[in-house]
Nucleic acid binder design. Sequence first.
DNA 1: ACCCTCGCATTTTTT
DNA 2: ATGCGAGGGT
Length: 775
Amino acid sequence: MIRPVAQFSEDFDADAGPPPERARAPGRFPYLDGLNPEQRAAVEALDGPVLVLAGAGVGKTRVLTTRIAHLIASGRARAHEILAVTFTNKAAREMRERVSVFTGSHQGMPWLGTFHSIGVKILRMHAELVGLRSNFTILDTDDQLRLMKQVLQAENLDDKRWPARALASLIDGWKNRGLDPAHVSPSESAAFAGGRGAALYAAYQARLKTLNAVDFGDLLLEALRLFRENPDVLELFQRRFRYILVDEYQDTNAVQYLWLRLLAQGRGNVCCVGDDDQSIYGWRGADVDNILRFETDFPGARVIRLERNYRSGGHILGLASGLIAHNRGRLGKTLFTDAPMGEKPTVTGVWDSQEEARVVGEAIEQAQRDGTSLDDIAILVRASFQMREFEERFITMGLPYKVIGGPRFYERAEIRDALAYMRCVAQPDDDLAFERIYNTPKRGLGEATLAILHEFGRRAGVSLMRAAQMLIETEELKARPRQLLRELLKSFDRWHQRSGEIAHEELAQVVLEESGYVDMWKAERTPDAAGRLDNLKELVRSMGEFPDLGAFLEHVSLVMDVESADAGERVSIMTLHAAKGLEFDLVFLPGWEEGLFPHQRSLDDNGRSGLEEERRLAYVGITRARRAAKILHAANRRVRGLWQTSVPSRFIEELPPDHVEIEETASASGFGGYGVSRFDAAGFGSRYETPGSRRAEQWTRREEAGAYGRGGLRPAEPRGLPRPAPSAGFAAGARVFHLKFGPGSVVASDGPKLTIDFDRAGRKLVMESFVTAEP
DNA sequence: ACCCTCGCATTTTTT
DNA sequence: ATGCGAGGGT
């Protein structure tokens, strides 16, 4: 339960009057001057729980940063006593920059960051309390998946029928909801491998612990567990954080909420900023209810609405408001503006996606002639496959564009390989990194050898690298792989030594060259090889921005992306999700068709709440526009290679007519030269008036039949730490049995290494853990 | 051990 | 259409 923190400072109550009359020492807080009354209230309501409902374009970031400045300037807290959490690194960076304008850059904000980065920081301080060492590694999705596969294989599950991906997303969901394996209900556990879901989750967690690793979900879940199980540590942080600020509160999931609530129970000074109408991440665990419940969760909470919009023209605002009004379960906010009505948003029907791209391209050229910068124009799509049509069109037109949110830098194969090398140098026990590069570039080491390393490592409870080190001393491996492995280990030894001598970026250069990795790409004559080499150069360069290898690797695992400063004006193409928080003069919203937007999958999986989230996405899209918004829908679209006819989105019918202009291009309205008759015959001639009942279910739904409820529950086989090899301590003369070499007699022993005369295979040097006493 | 071919799936995405 | 992964063939 939350301790009620109802009393506000008298300071605040005294402020209830109209702001201009307030006679604070004039000029003492100059940053308050430019704020409107609501913004100012949000900045000055420092004590107790506060919910700031900040609609689109109301100056939310300004309020947050000014609030931080005010906390510091008014002497309530010092910078290191303020916890400020965001969701993205970008938001954190932006906030940091803007705060430093007020505070001077010398006073950093050590506790301003993403949920994950703050989680890591706290976990590193108290790692041992959750069964980790403080230098734990953070696995990305790739490592996570490979580990999951290993777990599935160890359990002898058909990875066709029970794909690692599915398990990963299941576990992710559980972690998002704050559930550890013991708390997964049997009915949910039944969703995977006939009830073994929770057991697999437990096995996966055990593997993570032995690797001294966490995945992204753990950064939050373990941070929560830390606080739950260690009240003294919790209290430490409750006292440290005199004030807590949370950005994008509508995007918090259950773990984040629970974690925040624990911290907020201390001082009760928690300020959450968000907009229930912009909650678009339900599919990855965000729970809008968190923001809807705020006043119940934090009794005595003050709610401040920021409704004065500084971004868009009146018609755009009216359009967005009219649309979002169709959602139930809102906290309710009405954006208004003093700006003129401006341009009416348009809805344009086109024949197909090609025409859509063409129409948009032409409109952009027109806007450009009228003086709009390409940087101020964006195309916001529902699904990324829609981007291609625009890209192709823009390339033929010679229109510069950029795709926001494409494959990220640190996710590229060459970057991940290079990072794996560096991880192996920095942390020789990082098995996942070792596996990744152990035969990259191809050095003749295959699955068979890796399996032996795994087997030995598991039995002896050591990492792959250590297992390899031990095994090359023996004859367990065939001569060739043994030699190859020896060379690889020698290289790592050498690099490890040099890591103390030369700068880390220099070391990276050396490693990439000596390992043959650079040569591998040089030898590859594919078109993108050159780009990959460039990326590697960029990687080495960017390492120089960090004090040491460890700091760099930490940054990479948390940030996953690199800032790209590209010159020249460009149109932006991105998904609606990626557009949140951005704004443009001119926004194109293509693909407003049933099945695509709202997306069929969203409807199928989540029904009404799915639909409402889609509608919020539409709301986000429209409110990105400052001057003009242009909605388009195509009658025909190619999906997965085949053409489908489509019906305009129900969202189009929901738009308030006063704020929208309906247009049809010649070809779509049936007057042009394209397949008129077919189009009209299909009944799309007046499709704006088409009743919702006409919406065809043309998007085939995928059935996941048989995935649930199959089989009974099975008790989980406990999978703990790797069992240490039974140390039988074979003395000379003992009779032993080796799986590969058969029976033999021990001649001599040197620690775990045994010299054995095998009855059939002759004298061999093998690891003790590979032999058993002769039956 | 490596390469090639076949089959399958394909919303949204941060950390 | 396309790309990725797995399995089989060389």
